[in-house]
Computed example of a mutant assay.
Amino acid sequence: MTSQFKVQGSMKGLLLATAAVVVTMASMQANAARPTTPVTPPPAVTRPPIQQTPPPPVIVVPPCKRGGPGITPC
């Protein structure tokens, strides 16, 4: 008598698995039939160009004009 329950249980499991596959396939087909919306890229961000400021001019002062102890005037 226990062998009948095993056969019935395995048959129920097989039917349940088959039903699950059918439901899954139906939902996959429904998703495939739905039109897809095209993906548009985000708008490009326009930034002003980077402007580098030139370094300040180098002013060379001769040692005689800087002054200090031990420096002879020009």
Rank of each mutant, 00 (worst) to 15 (best):
M1G: 09
M1Q: 10
T2L: 12
S3G: 08
S3A: 06
S3L: 12
S3E: 11
Q4N: 14
V7Y: 13
V7C: 15
V7F: 13
Q8F: 03
G9P: 04
G9N: 04
G9W: 06
S10A: 13
K12R: 08
G13H: 07
L14V: 12
L14M: 13
L14G: 13
L15M: 14
L15C: 06
A17P: 00
A17H: 05
T18L: 05
A19T: 05
A20W: 02
A20E: 01
V21E: 03
V23L: 11
T24V: 13
A26S: 10
A30M: 06
A30F: 09
A30V: 08
N31F: 12
A33E: 14
T36F: 01
P38T: 04
V39A: 06
P41H: 03
P41Q: 10
P43Q: 03
A44D: 00
A44N: 01
A44M: 02
V45W: 00
T46R: 10
P49W: 05
I50N: 03
Q52K: 11
P54S: 10
P56T: 11
P56N: 13
I59K: 03
V61I: 13
P63Q: 14
C64G: 08
C64E: 12
R66K: 05
I71V: 13
T72M: 09
T72S: 05
T72A: 08
T72N: 05
P73F: 08
P73C: 15
